[in-house]
């Protein structure tokens, strides 16, 4: 048996273990780099592209990718790379709002349903069943048509459409943990139900929900950009990933870069988010 010398001695190897875990998986490492870049673009867009995303040089319209214009230029001569970089802020904000809505509302409902049980559980879960019978994209569309257009409304619509699946996962996890032997052991040794909820059920049940949230991040990017593409999000001059592709649609035959590059950025971001989610999922399973 090894002898551990204090708290620090146990944390440092753990951190080193995490780093090692990542380094040994090039795909995961790349995903983390992509996400970091996207985050950087969203928070400090000028660091990556210092031009103005809304002003173009008409002389340089519809130029292909080159050293000067990494992603080429659009029909007004605006640099596409700059527009993509500046667009990530809006796209990412919408995604975060969507995930937060789904996580907070869905997780809360699932927690209540799972822990309280009884008729409340029955009513909530039947509602969830029905909502899940409606495809998510359609549910978002219905919400958008009721709420109106705009990026924030799109984000809320996308988030609400995912509430059902979060509620379901959270409830299932709460039930799993609640019926686990260690919770029964805690109850048998006299722990009150409030303490069981906060000390045992919540920490052990929230893991899968956070994994779902990471996965939902990718789904939300896709949904938000699809709704923007359809024209329900930000109005045209604003750079937003889905809008950029919609703008480029008219030039598919002549200027391929206008749709290809923003799409690649979306795909790379979603792929990275999914990869990280899978790593989190794997970590969790190893823990058990």
């Amino acid at each position: 048996m090894t002898t551990a010398t204090g708290f620090g001695a146990r944390v440092v190897p753990a951190a080193r273990g995490h780093a090692w875990f990542v380094v040994r998986r090039p795909g995961l490492l790349l995903s983390l780099v992509v996400l970091a870049l996207v985050l950087l673009a969203a928070v400090f867009p000028t660091l990556l592209a210092d031009g103005d995303p809304l002003v173009g040089t008409p002389r340089e319209r519809l130029q292909g990718p080159s050293g000067a214009h990494l992603f080429g230029t659009d029909q007004l001569g605006r640099d596409l790379f700059t527009r993509v970089v500046h667009g990530s802020s809006l796209s990412l904000r919408a995604t975060v709002v969507a995930v937060a809505v789904a996580l907070v509302v869905g997780g809360g409902l699932g927690l209540v349903a799972g822990f309280v049980g009884g008729w409340l559980d029955a009513v909530l879960m039947r509602t969830v069943d029905v909502v899940q019978a409606i495809p998510r994209l359609l549910l978002s569309l219905a919400l958008v048509s009721a709420l109106g257009f705009g990026t924030t409304k799109v984000a809320i619509a996308v988030g609400v459409a995912s509430v059902a699946s979060f509620a379901r996962v959270m409830r299932a996890e709460v039930l799993r943990v609640r019926s686990s032997v260690y919770v029964e052991a805690a109850r048998a040794s006299g722990v009150r139900s409030g303490a069981i909820l906060t000390r045992h059920v919540l920490p052990n049940a929230s893991g899968p929900v956070f994994v779902l949230a990471a996965l939902e991040f990718g789904v939300a990017i896709l949904s938000v950009s699809a709704l923007s593409f359809l024209g329900f999000g930000a109005p045209p001059p604003t750079p937003e990933w889905g809008v950029l592709i919609a703008d480029g649609r008219g030039f598919v035959a002549t200027a391929w870069w206008l749709t290809t590059f923003p799409g690649l950025v979306i795909a790379a971001t979603v792929l990275s988010a999914n990869r990280v989610s899978r790593a989190l999922d794997g970590e969790r399973r190893r823990e058990r």
């Binding site: 896709l222 592709i245 480029g248 979306i266």
Partner: peptide
């Protein structure tokens, strides 16, 4: 499959149009 799930449908459609049709 992971790649397939990550690609926006509208983008894939536009790429196909670009390459196959045009």
């Amino acid at each position: 499959p992971a790649i397939g799930i990550s690609m926006p449908g509208f983008w894939v459609g536009l790429l196909l149009v670009q390459v196959v049709s045009f």
